[in-house]
């Protein structure tokens, strides 16, 4: 990064630190912050979409759909999220490959779980063996996103379900009395109101989501925890230009500060959003239910 870094033997303390903190390996750590942000950016809308589906399923006229919705919203109550994070990527991968195996290789009829092996034909592999590096990385990341979306979708479903019940019944009855169809009532009156009631709960889910992002590490993604652990470990002079002892405590302090800042900024942002939306609510109270 800096000119003087090329000769790392003769560096003064501050220069040494500047060089150390800008090694390509450290840049990997900084880039991995983007991974966290990307995960949040992709997961949040997916989780809200899944949450809305779950909440609507719970109000479905069909008993089967209703119980599916109930099961989805209830499962995060009984099962630790970590189980989903460990289970979903592995299970998704095997399920997809199993289906592809059955469809793409109909000639192979043997079992796929043999002893402690999972064998599918090479055409069914995901990603395909010869795919370029980024396809593999992206695939792994997508599996992690799916796991996050499922868990946080269930959290959102709980919030949205509660919010839908909180919308004053009188408003819905009024809308119906005006001759709106059930669909119109839902789209024009019920859902727009739901978001206002759901906002505090969804804000909370956002905070939990932020605090769950380091669990990416457990899914094998090279995230900030991975790089912090890797960089903080003892480095010997034989294998590094910047030998040092066990510095993990400094790196974990860094992670702690990073997350504190992140949640703190989020909290301020969400508070502003809530204030703004409630202001809008006050003016809407005149009777304009539509969005």
């Amino acid at each position: 990064m800096f000119e003087y870094c090329s000769n790392s033997d003769s560096l003064a303390n501050l220069q040494w630190l500047a060089c150390y903190l800008t090694t390509l390996k450290h840049q990997s750590l900084y880039w991995s912050i983007l991974t966290v942000l990307l995960l949040l950016a992709v997961t949040a809308p997916l989780a809200i979409a899944l949450g809305l589906s779950g909440a609507l399923a719970r109000r479905s006229p069909f008993a089967v759909v209703r119980s599916l919705g109930w099961g989805y919203t209830s499962m995060v109550r009984g099962i630790p999220d970590l189980i989903f994070f460990l289970f979903v990527p592995l299970a998704m991968d095997q399920l997809l490959e199993y289906v592809r195996h059955r469809v793409l290789c109909p000639q192979e009829t043997g079992p796929v779980w043999i002893g402690h092996d999972f064998v599918v034909c090479s055409a069914a592999k995901l990603p395909l063996g010869p795919s370029p590096e980024w396809v593999h990385d992206t695939y792994g990341f997508i599996l992690a996103v799916v796991a996050f979306a499922i868990v946080f979708g269930a959290f959102c479903a709980n919030v949205i379900h509660g919010a839908m019940n909180a919308v004053p019944r009188t408003q819905l009855e009024t809308a119906r009395a005006y001759g709106l169809s059930p669909r119109q009532v839902m789209l024009r009156v019920h859902l727009p109101q739901t978001w206002i009631y759901a906002l505090p709960g969804l804000s909370n889910v956002w905070m939990i989501l932020i605090k769950a992002t380091p669990l990416l590490f457990l899914m094998g993604v090279e995230d900030i925890v991975y790089w912090a652990k890797e960089l903080g470990g003892t480095k010997s002079a034989r294998f590094s230009d910047f030998p040092h002892g066990d510095w993990r405590i400094y790196y974990f302090t860094g992670l702690l500060v990073f997350y504190l800042l992140f949640t703190w900024v989020s909290q301020i942002g969400l508070k502003r959003l809530t204030d703004k939306v409630s202001r809008g609510q006050a003016t809407m109270a005149g009777g304009k239910g539509g969005a």
Partner: peptide
Amino acid sequence: VFIFRGSPLFIQFFFVYAVLVS
């Protein structure tokens, strides 16, 4: 309350362990 609610439990484990080990 701010520190323990504002940071991930997962990181708290790593951090506290590093402190306790020393």
